[in-house]
């Protein structure tokens, strides 16, 4: 039995990495989505638009720039899935949740910053996504993406 394991060490290591990547990745993703949805519901009252907005004279007390960002990477399992998908073409489902999570998290962090500073709304939201490091499919690379959200937080003069 031990001989079999040592003889096929590379194969077993690969399968182990796959299993670890899959289980940890799935658990982390579920937990993250749960927290995203909870916080989204909490912050839903904070108005967020990507229009510039026009304000009447004297309506605005203060305005400032807020931003939020997140760098995420895929797990071993999903990366393999993406590599395989690369061959056949089509929808790369393995990356859908990754980007979705990163972007929603970035917006949430921006909103949290705005709320902490007492803003009533965020106008002119801009979103950006960029890859950090080398391409995700190359070997030995730390492939990851950054989602950035920024906008202008506005504090109104409220009676």
């Amino acid at each position: 039995m031990l001989e079999v394991i040592f003889g096929n060490l590379d194969l077993f290591l690969f399968l182990l990495l796959m299993a670890v990547g899959y289980s940890c990745g799935t658990i982390a993703e579920k937990r993250h989505y749960k927290s995203i949805i909870r916080r989204e519901k909490e912050l839903i009252k904070l108005m967020l638009v990507n229009a510039e907005g026009h304000f009447a004279d004297g309506a605005v007390n203060n305005s400032f720039l807020v931003s939020g960002s997140m760098v995420v990477s895929n797990d071993y399992f999903k990366r393999l899935l993406a590599i395989l998908r690369n061959f056949f073409g089509g929808r790369v489902k393995a990356y859908e949740t990754l980007i979705d999570r990163a972007r929603r998290e970035a917006i949430l962090r921006m909103k949290e910053e705005a709320k902490a500073k007492g803003a009533h709304m965020i106008v002119n939201l801009r979103l950006e996504t960029s890859t950090i490091g080398r391409s995700a499919n190359k070997k030995n690379s730390v492939g990851s993406i950054e989602a950035l959200a920024y906008g202008t937080a506005v504090v109104m003069n409220r009676p």
């Binding site: 670890v20 990745g25 993703e29 997140m70 760098v71 995420v72 990477s73 950090i132 950035l148």
Partner: peptide, 23 residues
């Protein structure tokens, strides 16, 4: 650390902070 994290996926906190600082 990021290399380790790359295995299981998830947020790379070090990078997030680094990019925030840089920005």
């Amino acid at each position: 650390m990021a290399g380790l994290k790359n295995l299981v996926g998830g947020e790379l906190k070090g990078y997030t902070e680094l990019l925030q600082e840089s920005r």
